[in-house]
Design a protein around this nucleic acid. Sequence first.
RNA 1: CGGGAUGUGGCUCAGUCUGGUAGAGCACAGCGUUCGGGACGCUGGGGUCGGAGGUUCGAAUCCUCUCAUCCCGACCA
Length: 572
Amino acid sequence: MRFSKMLIPTLKESPADAEVVSHKLMLRGGYIRKLASGIYSYLPLGLAAIRKVEKIVQEEMNLAGAQELLLPMVQPSDLWKESGRWQKYGAELLRFTDRHDRESCLGPTHEEVITDLVRKNLHSYRDLPINLYQIQTKFRDEIRPRFGLMRGREFIMKDGYSFDATESGAEETYEKMNVAYHKIFSRCGLKFRAVDADSGTIGGSFSHEFMVLADTGEDTIVTCRNCSYAANMEKAQAAISPSDNAEMKDLEKIETPGKRKVVAVCDFLNITPDKLVKTLIYIVDGTPVAVLLRGDHEVQEVKLQNLLNADEIRLADDKEVFDATGVPTGYLGPAGLGIKKVADQEVGQMRNFAIGANEKNYHMLNANLERDFEIDAIGDIRTVTEQDLCPKCAGPLELTKGIEVGHIFKLGTSYSESLKATFLDSQGEEKYFIMGCYGIGVSRIVAAAIEQNHDKDGMIFPMPIAPFQVMILNLSTKDEDITHAAEALYQKCLDNGIEAIIDDRDERPGIKFKDADLIGIPLRVNVGKNFSKDGQVEIKIRSTGETLSFSADDAPEKIKKLVEEALHIDNL
RNA sequence: CGGGAUGUGGCUCAGUCUGGUAGAGCACAGCGUUCGGGACGCUGGGGUCGGAGGUUCGAAUCCUCUCAUCCCGACCA
């Protein structure tokens, strides 16, 4: 392609509404333009990068036995009502009615449509397993879109769905996708971790998120510095503390005037927060539940929700607490509290701890589980911190920020049951399809790659997903020899199957250098005054800044070699 | 949805407090000089200040409503 003919509107300054680096650089480099909040146009360069990612995704998915199709974006409400998600999904689902007053929505995901397709067309175990995917624009009416392509309302996603006849088959399919995903993100040149993710009420470890490591990520992931343990914050566990075997002392009521917060109470009682159990009240599907935690721990609401098998939980406000317990917040304790109680497993390890006395201005010392109060459920319901130890090897844990670019999930039969999607097994028995779903944020990958690869001058694309592999700069369009050499080199590259763009604009060299750095094409070739002097051109490697000189004749071969090397390195 | 902020040529921003009919840099067009890290000079085109209403002799500036965008939080396949 010719720069002079291509729509590449670069900017010297970042538009004021861009916050993160990928957003700024994609706007400045002429990759994208915003149309409305969370809705972007992909310009030629942006689309070229997206197409590269799509191609890698398609190759690996096909290799893993999946087949591509394309499902409708506009979907009738009937299907969503049948699955129950017309109610459940909430405002993120953009709904509208057509001219015949039929309710419809824009597809945020396609479990309903694919399940409908399969239930209508596949009826036998002989047809299984089958794995279908599409690459398509999705629309989710996010409450708060932000950071450009990182969280748009409209975005490009690869979503795949598998249907198996048996549990073991479904697990095999899941593992195939796991392998394919590792290859896809590696091939995209991304540094990433696959982490255990919350799999909701289904349970088991059949959900993994693929997180690109970057400070601007919106998710937190927990990794072990020693072993391979890695998990999403909502799922991450910590090694459990050894149980305290101290002898139980006598329960003692003590006045703690005005001391409500954990820190204040502990200071007053001269104990550390890990010797206190705090009592929080949650409203769980409409009923108050007491949640017990060690003083220095915090609730992980997703874990709590899973433990209680609840649809909706939220922290109660002061009034709801008083209505439920008759005690003002700050003095709540489990002993004698007449509502359902759940405790974090760490509470079970403690002895002789402090609790609220359920009376204003009083706490209790030397409380003990079972002797002084009973609980209805116990489990891991707290948030892991960097002070905790790895649940697998007891090594030190690290919290890092990540961008979720992929998520694989073993769905089981939840959708096939709600949509009554069945097949006949070899015994002639009617069975529900066992499903899995597998998503990749294609447009988000491009943003994540830039978050991970940039410098003060601009983007630094990994070779496999760069819009072009090499950019040739004609540094003097007025000089016939230089122009001739640059054009010849460009043509030679194209002939050799190298994806090349030539900057043939009638601009000064400085502008071309700046734009080239900004746009981030991995290889750049300068054809300018050194060519006039001694027939040399320079190949500059964007990532390292290294510059190599070659005669114009040798350059194409060298470029080809560099491109292939870069593709291979990134293939590991 | 709660909190905060911003809307002035294509972009970045000044002017708003202390009303007097709009400015800079970049970008754009023409000419000339330049030409290896976003050149310089001259000339020129382009905005009625997010929108509506109001106060006033007079509103970018004051008031009311409204729309949009961004940030923090809550929420989130």
